[in-house]
Design a protein around this nucleic acid. Structure first.
Lengths: 242, 242
DNA sequence: CAGTGGTCTAGACCACGCT
DNA sequence: GCGTGGTCTAGACCACTGA
């Protein structure tokens, strides 16, 4: 079951083995999985390796450990309540048949600022591609996006015309980078700079929506970190306390 | 700096050391911390112990590691955007000067159901105290709460009168359990059972607010898992896309 | 008392970034 | 080529649970 000649680390293979058995129902929620000793023998690896695998799965919420009792299977973590699709602005608009356009404000390789380097898990000052765009719907400015991509993943991307090409298309087509998953954080905010107010054509007292997004490839490499500021209004009916 | 006679594990002492230096600014965001080898020598522990400490801090977002480059300090994670206070219903109401009352529907030690055992990090079927309450404001039923607490933490709690005592007060006063932090998840829902509809005096088509809450002591021991269903309405002005 | 997970040590080899 | 973190081994002792 475990292949020692594979370039895939043993602990990672073991994670997959256990995950598979959980997802396929061999191990059911509430069951204990085999003890560390048993797993050592089954897969002929050291205890430290077994522990590395198990602790990883505990961190991901698949398992919980109780001292002197065993390692228990959790119910599959529910999907996040609000799942968005991993679409870019262009895709979204095209799909809805909405006319849009893009103006590129900035397009350079720069040394990664601290915050960006943290998000992309690279060293501060490592080169990143910075793409700063203003996007329009029906000729109305609605959205400012600041994207950052490690330059290592996309050499010479700064030569591409992003007024007529979508970023996600370019990543997929030119660099064979397929985005796999990601996370977006939404937060209401007030415009921070006069430039934002000017670009979006709003008053400095208009609240905007601030979105931070980080997307990854299948193997969990961070690809794009993007900060979006957009205007508009949105009403949600929530439920209330009193 | 590290005390080998302390009952506190070495790796945990080391975590505190590093965290302190981050929080006090000795290590600044973007800096590298000492290498694993250097930390081994500084604190005279093995590399595995150093790694255990560092990986813990990576998991908590304090550090990030970049192979062949080093271990970097992240900017302090911002506080969650919406911080609530860790108050119970009774405290909240008293503070606002609102008249409220409580009816206990159920009060027993039971074997922990699967979901509860996972939340409280105990084994399924381990004994837990189950408290099922209906709470009123101005004699109107508004809230159903199902609380679960590991029985090990609160022996004989089932003998206490919870119509005139608040749960959090009892935990603090009788059991010396001080709640330290927690998390609440809010979610709109429809009433699931006829009982809920009846108890809350609502129609089965009225949406309700479903809240899951898990609170911990300072040392991260889960104390109370509670599921709340409440009625009411709530309007939030969010910002909107288009 | 045996078995579990929790902690810890002292080694080893590797891939990778830098210079 | 040197130094970094990444992976891995083969031991050890402990505290706690449950029979």
């Amino acid at each position: 079951m475990i292949n020692r000649n594979s370039p895939i680390p043993l602990y990672y293979q073991l994670i997959q083995e256990i995950k598979d058995k959980i997802e396929s129902g061999v191990y059911e929620p509430g069951d204990t999985i085999p003890t560390e000793i048993e797993l050592m023998e089954q897969f002929d690896v050291s205890r430290a390796t077994v522990r590395q695998s198990i602790l990883h799965l505990v961190n991901e919420g698949y398992l919980r450990r109780i001292k002197a009792k065993g390692t228990f299977v959790n119910t599959r973590p529910e999907k996040p309540k609000f799942i968005g699709t991993l679409k870019g602005f262009a895709q979204e608009m095209t799909q809805k048949g909405i006319a849009f356009s893009t103006k590129v404000l900035e397009k350079h390789i720069i040394p990664a600022p601290l915050k960006v380097s943290e998000k992309l898990n690279i060293a501060t000052e490592d080169p990143v591609f910075h793409l700063h765009r203003l996007r329009f719907i029906h000729h109305e400015p609605v959205l400012i996006a600041n994207s950052f991509i490690p330059e290592q993943l996309c050499r010479h991307i700064e030569d591409i015309d992003f007024e007529h090409n979508s970023l996600y298309d370019v990543l997929e087509t030119n660099y064979r980078i397929t985005l796999h998953h990601g996370r977006r954080d939404f937060e209401p905010a007030m415009p921070l700079s006069a430039e934002e107010v000017r670009l979006l054509g709003i008053s400095s007292k208009t609240p905007i929506l601030y979105v931070e997004s980080l997307v990854y490839t299948q193997d969990n490499t961070p690809v794009e970190y993007v900060e979006i500021k957009m205007r508009g209004k949105f009403t949600v009916d929530l439920i209330q306390l009193f």
